[in-house]
Design a protein around this nucleic acid. Structure first.
Length: 603
RNA sequence: GGGGGCGUAGCUCAAUUGGUUAGAGUACCAGCCUGUCACGCUGGGUGUUGCGGGUUCGAGUCCCGUCGCUCCCGCCA
């Protein structure tokens, strides 16, 4: 045999073509499937690139060795590339016009019985998929997602550096910050009783890089937050494309992100991008129309205010709400007059499940008004409502009445559910938008205190003057989000780089000067020594890939995700550590009362 | 921390109103098969019905508790 032949492979499993017929080749990979005819045996050998069919003829001495291994074993075959006859070509695989006629076989990695099938599409419990993640990652869907993620990240780097950005690393062991989510803490051995925190984002560092004069920064940055999971939020850690720029306005930043995101989404998905530049929607408008700060612009349904129509209505339930300062909002849904009674009842049930006391509806069909509440309404009131919704025959409206905050929230859920039920969302389009003009402060519902509503480092619109003179709850910030198809991709801001404005903003949020100096000393001191105006944003990489891969769950685009309880079932993390390690770190574990018994009974 | 859903073979699922020996596909094991490509054929059930308790003549099925997974709320500057 050719001495120069590589010991594992001359070709990968997706490479061989008609042109290679007659060559002696060597390929290695996993046994994808076996078709044993008693005499001739066919094996689909799989690697990251694809599949190649290997034929084993009965006269070969290793023919009977087939019993030694099974599906998902790793084998190496040496043999001749043979053309398949026309009727035997497999158009489903790239190498389908040829096959490799085995002359020699090496077992490189024998596989035991696998806990779930790799080659076949079948539902598998997620706990098992996570425990055997390396097996799950062999399956086509996940394998493709992770490769897509890799390509997206490398494309992001190419585009960012192409636009003049530099990538810098920032510390993973840093200080806890009083704002935001719970931190992951790392105890210090050298400083008893003191802790590092893993960064929730490199927020202060990237701003310090601007103060350091680097002008355009980005990083594929790991972020750590001890918060509970959602379908689009993996607990523990996630990645952001962290971006910061100096001497820019909001518009400059928007232009950069629009170029980047439209470029990437265009390249890695066949879906259309609805509109570039992305439409800009003020936060308050988004909340009013869709009941959320992450509206799905594919959804044609939205809310309108109809409080006036019910204010003096005989429909007491609603009239009372309005008279007490609440609101009535309506959702117009075109062309659903023919829906069954059950559909309407189910929607009411849904509204109640998300906190509504009830939900009313009116259906206009065949020139008539059908509704449980119409009999309480005057002709003029019905007209008012009809006009507010631009109602035509065949349309319907749903009505919610409560305090504004509840109505907005519940209505948001109903708007989404209706779109889902009625399949109103176009699956072939990405609709991006900017949500702008977030309020700088909001009222804490429990304490009634004024708190930062988003990022405390955002520049208040109007600067010091507004901080001094305006009702804090009316002050807007240069704070913005990018939303795509109802998924919040990122938030960002033009930063507050003026120490005095910073002190004032924190004062309004209840922190005095010394707290700012103590907790954000590094940054505030930097701002006293010449800070450029700057701003940035941080789109979630995992969520971007999730949208591009068209996956409903973020774990499908992360190679080794935590489960919902923030555990790594494969590596068995978190885990107890040796007493000695705790002692070195000056730590003592105090188990919560309800966990103590379980701990005991385990032992 | 709270609410919803789910939990039957390694995996996907079935099992009538509470009824007798818990079935099927796949995986697995044994055998057959020389052109398949999710090969096919024959045979084999490998099970603490998540766990614990209760009701009942009888529980996979009903009740209570508990555990696990998942979706959501809270949380997410």
């Amino acid at each position: 045999m050719d001495r120069k032949m590589h010991i594992y492979r001359t070709h990968n499993c997706a490479e061989l073509r008609k042109e290679n017929v007659g060559e002696t080749v060597r390929i290695s990979g996993w046994v994808h499937s076996v078709r044993d005819h008693g005499g001739v045996i066919f094996i689909d050998l799989r690697d990251s690139y694809g599949l190649t069919q290997v034929v084993i003829n009965p006269e070969l001495e290793f023919h009977q060795d087939l019993e030694k291994w099974r599906v998902e074993s790793v084998l190496c075959f040496t043999g001749k590339v043979v053309a398949r006859s026309v009727e035997n070509v497999n158009p489903k695989i790239a190498s389908g016009e040829i096959e490799v006629s085995a002359e020699d076989m090496q077992v490189l990695g024998e596989a035991d019985v696998i806990p779930f099938q790799v080659a076949k599409e079948e539902q598998t419990p997620e706990a098992m998929r996570l425990k055997y993640r390396f097996l799950d990652l062999r399956r086509e869907r996940l394998h493709k997602n992770i490769l897509l993620r890799s390509e997206v990240i490398s494309d992001i780097r190419r585009r960012m550096t192409g636009m003049g950005f530099h990538e810098f690393q920032t510390p993973i062991l840093t200080a806890s910050s009083p704002e935001g989510a719970r931190d992951y803490l790392v105890p210090s051995r050298i400083h008893p009783g003191k802790f590092y925190a893993l960064p929730q984002a490199p927020q202060q560092f990237k701003q310090l890089l601007m103060v350091a004069g680097f002008d355009k920064y980005f990083q594929i940055a790991p972020c750590f937050r001890d918060e509970d999971a959602r379908a689009d939020r993996s607990p523990g850690e996630f990645y952001q494309l962290d971006v910061e720029m100096s001497f820019i306005t909001q518009d400059d930043l928007f232009a950069v992100m629009e170029e980047l995101l439209s470029g990437i989404f265009d390249k890695f998905s066949s879906k259309k991008i609805a509109q570039v530049p992305f439409p800009r929607i003020p936060y308050r408008e988004a909340m009013f129309r869709w009941g959320t700060d992450k509206p799905d612009l594919r959804n044609p349904l939205e809310m309108v205010d109809v409080s006036e129509a019910f204010k003096n209505s005989d429909f007491n339930a609603f009239a009372t709400v309005v008279q007490k300062g609440g609101v009535v909002r309506a959702i117009k849904v075109p062309g659903i007059a023919d829906k069954s009674r059950k559909f309407y009842d189910d929607m009411i049930k849904f509204a109640q499940s998300v906190g509504a006391k009830g939900m009313a509806y009116i259906v206009w069909a065949d020139g008539e008004v059908k509704s449980p509440i119409a009999k309480f309404m005057k002709e003029s009131e019905l007209e008012l409502v009809k006009k507010a919704g631009g109602i035509k025959d065949g349309d319907a409206m749903f009505f919610l009445a409560d305090k504004e905050k509840s109505v907005v929230n519940i209505g948001g859920h109903v708007v989404r559910e209706l779109a889902e039920q009625l399949e109103l969302l176009d699956k072939d389009v990405f609709k991006f938008c900017w949500i702008v003009d977030f309020p700088m402060f909001e009222e804490d519902e429990e304490t009634g205190q004024t708190v930062f509503s988003h990022n405390p480092f955002s520049m208040p619109q109007g600067g010091m003057e507004e901080l001094l003179n305006k009702n804090p709850l009316d002050i807007l910030a240069y704070q913005y989000d990018i939303v795509c198809n109802g998924v919040e991709l990122s938030s960002g801001a033009i930063r507050n780089h003026n120490p005095e404005i910073m002190y004032k903003a924190f004062e309004i949020a209840g922190y005095d000067r010394s707290v700012v100096d103590d907790k954000f000393g590094g940054m505030i001191n930097a701002f006293k020594l010449g800070a450029p105006p700057h701003g940035g944003i941080a789109p979630g990489v995992d969520r971007m890939v999730m949208l591009l891969a068209d996956e409903p769950n973020i774990r499908e685009v992360i190679a080794f995700p935590f489960n919902q309880q923030a555990q790594d079932l494969m590596m068995n993390a978190p885990a107890e550590v040796a007493l000695r390690q705790l002692q070195e770190l000056h730590l003592k574990v105090v188990m919560p009362e309800d966990k103590k018994e379980k701990q005991q009974s385990k032992k």
